[in-house]
Measured scan of single mutants.
Amino acid sequence: MAAAAAAGAGPEMVRGQVFDVGPRYTNLSYIGEGAYGMVCSAYDNVNKVRVAIKKISPFEHQTYCQRTLREIKILLRFRHENIIGINDIIRAPTIEQMKDVYIVQDLMETDLYKLLKTQHLSNDHICYFLYQILRGLKYIHSANVLHRDLKPSNLLLNTTCDLKICDFGLARVADPDHDHTGFLTEYVATRWYRAPEIMLNSKGYTKSIDIWSVGCILAEMLSNRPIFPGKHYLDQLNHILGILGSPSQEDLNCIINLKARNYLLSLPHKNKVPWNRLFPNADSKALDLLDKMLTFNPHKRIEVEQALAHPYLEQYYDPSDEPIAEAPFKFDMELDDLPKEKLKELIFEETARFQPGYRS
């Protein structure tokens, strides 16, 4: 834990890192770190609560700039109880001085990944967590956004079992017609939660990839272990087919990539493993919904509104309290091709509203 900075004593240090967030945020305490930044909790002297502050230093890398800009653009436009918001952003007053960006968010005690390492969940908890994931996802999908990296560590939890989806750095506007060349190379989302079509096709992607990830998360809540822990690309596919069985001819016809289709045709026939054999203690309604989410063919996979209306979630289902976005989200430009200098300018502009004396 960093010592509390005395008023006016300059930035606090946390594990050798400068955290320049005073005077409003003090009493910093280390939480963890990701690929390009550290997260601390801090005391907000204005709202009198502890908050989470993520320090991001992305400006050396085009990919990190892209992810940072995506996350900020999306989260500043989203407003939903099951999606983490941005409360404040701290950065230098000029673009030349801006080396880091500090993002202030609600402090959540833990995440689903940490929880599943230590606790076996009751059916009631599984049901409530799944409902909140789908409630947040309904809003995301209504904005025409794909999260693309749903996994237990991106689901934040607090002691009252509130759940918030975080990390929109890989999110995209849904565009089933656009052929994202190089899709697989830039697709760094965790393999275990990846839909089979991501490994088999490169053309376009749809909201059904997020539903697949939610199915993987439900299976993990039922058993405290990942359902498809593939060691590499082909191993991942083999794990999936080992449980779902061989795809039907109709399902194979959806695979545009001939090499991928021929690979699947070359494999020995596998039978589907019954879900109640894998999860003998699970609620039968939970397994019915799991089956509809972990469907090989993305066109037959359940959609988020149908999933919310499934009998497993009937005690929570309330369409009048499951809000959607006001308007579909649009990125003005494809960020993939922009140089990091341009992305830095866009991050600077996007964060201006939090600067003292800002006038829109």
Rank of each mutant, 00 (worst) to 15 (best):
V145A: 00
L241I: 13
A219K: 10
D20K: 03
P58K: 15
L244M: 14
Q17L: 14
P152K: 07
D283A: 13
R359I: 11
R91P: 05
I324P: 02
N82P: 04
W275C: 15
H125S: 02
L241T: 03
K114G: 12
T26Y: 08
A143N: 02
D162F: 10
P323C: 06
H120F: 02
T63F: 13
E314D: 13
L146D: 06
K231P: 04
D235M: 07
G22L: 04
C254R: 12
R135W: 00
F296E: 00
L137K: 05
D288V: 13
R67A: 08
S266A: 05
N297I: 15
A6L: 06
K292D: 09
C65W: 12
Q62E: 09
K203V: 10
P152L: 08
C65Q: 10
Q119M: 03
Y317M: 05
L146Y: 05
H125Y: 06
S360G: 09
V104C: 09
P268V: 05
Y193D: 03
W275Y: 07
C166K: 08
S122N: 14
T26L: 08
I133G: 02
V46G: 11
L107D: 12
I72R: 02
M38F: 13
R148H: 02
P247W: 06
R301V: 05
R15N: 05
L335E: 01
S213M: 04
R225M: 04
L115S: 02
D44M: 12
L287V: 10
K330F: 02
F129D: 05
A189P: 08
K270T: 02
E314L: 10
R70G: 09
D337K: 04
Y139D: 07
E345T: 02
L76W: 01
K344A: 08
K54F: 03
Y43D: 13
R135H: 08
I86M: 07
L222E: 09
H269Y: 12
A325Y: 03
T190S: 15
L287F: 03
Y64H: 15
P23I: 01
H178V: 08
S248R: 12
L69W: 00
Q132Y: 04
E303K: 09
L146R: 10
C65A: 12
L76R: 00
H232F: 01
P319E: 05
I74G: 09
Y131L: 12
E345W: 11
E250F: 02
G242P: 05
K203Y: 11
I217Y: 08
L265W: 04
A4H: 08
N123V: 03
D251A: 12
H232N: 13
L121Y: 06
L146S: 11
G34I: 07
T94A: 00
K272D: 02
H61W: 13
C216L: 08
F279Y: 14
I227C: 06
I140A: 03
K99M: 14
V304Q: 07
A35W: 02
L184K: 05
I209Q: 12
I243V: 03
M333S: 11
F329P: 00
Y139C: 05
L308E: 02
I95Y: 06
L241V: 09
R135T: 07
N144W: 02
L200P: 05
E250W: 05
N82Y: 15
Y205E: 09
I56H: 15
S213Y: 05
P323K: 07
D288W: 03
Q119E: 11
I133T: 02
P93I: 12
S320P: 02
I227S: 13
Q17T: 00
G34A: 12
K54P: 04
L335I: 05
V173E: 15
I227Q: 07
Q62K: 15
C161G: 00
I95G: 02
D111C: 09
Q249F: 09
E33F: 02
A307F: 02
K342Q: 11
I53A: 07
L290R: 08
I140D: 09
K340P: 10
H147S: 01
V214F: 11
P196F: 04
K270W: 05
D291K: 06
A174T: 13
W212I: 06
C161V: 01
E81G: 13
T295F: 02
E334R: 00
N257A: 07
V46L: 12
R191L: 13
M221N: 02
R67M: 14
A2F: 00
H299P: 02
P247G: 03
D291R: 03
Q236M: 06
C65V: 14
G37K: 15
L343V: 01
H178Y: 11
M221T: 00
L150R: 00
L156P: 00
S223Y: 15
L134M: 13
G37T: 15
A195T: 07
I133N: 15
A309Y: 06
V21W: 08
N276L: 04
A325N: 05
H232S: 00
A9E: 12
G230K: 00
P323W: 03
G204N: 07
G169Q: 04
P226G: 08
S246V: 04
E303D: 14
V14A: 12
T159C: 09
D288M: 01
E322G: 00
L335Q: 15
I209E: 09
E314R: 06
Y312A: 02
I84C: 14
D162L: 06
P58H: 15
L265Y: 09
R24C: 11
A174C: 10
T190C: 01
I86F: 15
W212D: 06
N45G: 13
M199V: 00
Q132S: 13
H147D: 10
K117S: 03
I140R: 11
L294H: 03
H232C: 01
Y263A: 05
M333R: 02
V173N: 09
C216Q: 04
F296G: 07
K151M: 14
L234Q: 14
P247T: 14
F348G: 04
L184E: 09
N144A: 02
D162K: 04
D149P: 02
Q97G: 04
R135S: 13
E220I: 07
L121V: 13
S208I: 07
R148P: 08
L234I: 10
R70I: 01
E186F: 00
G8H: 09
I243E: 08
E109D: 15
N253Y: 14
L28M: 14
E305G: 00
S122Q: 10
A5V: 12
I126S: 11
K73G: 05
I140E: 09
T63P: 14
Q306T: 04
N144C: 08
D332I: 11
N262D: 01
L137E: 07
I126V: 15
V46M: 10
I255K: 10
E341K: 14
R148W: 07
I72N: 14
K285Y: 12
L343N: 12
K207D: 03
L184T: 02
N253H: 12
G10K: 03
L75D: 03
A352C: 07
A4S: 13
F183L: 14
Q249H: 13
R67E: 13
F354D: 12
N82D: 01
S122K: 02
E350T: 03
Y193T: 08
A309E: 06
R277H: 07
Y128L: 02
D177N: 11
A35Q: 12
F331T: 01
Y64R: 15
R191Q: 13
Q119H: 15
P280T: 14
N123M: 04
V101R: 04
K272S: 10
G357E: 10
L287G: 05
G16L: 09
F331Q: 02
D321L: 06
D179K: 07
A325R: 05
L267S: 04
G10Y: 09
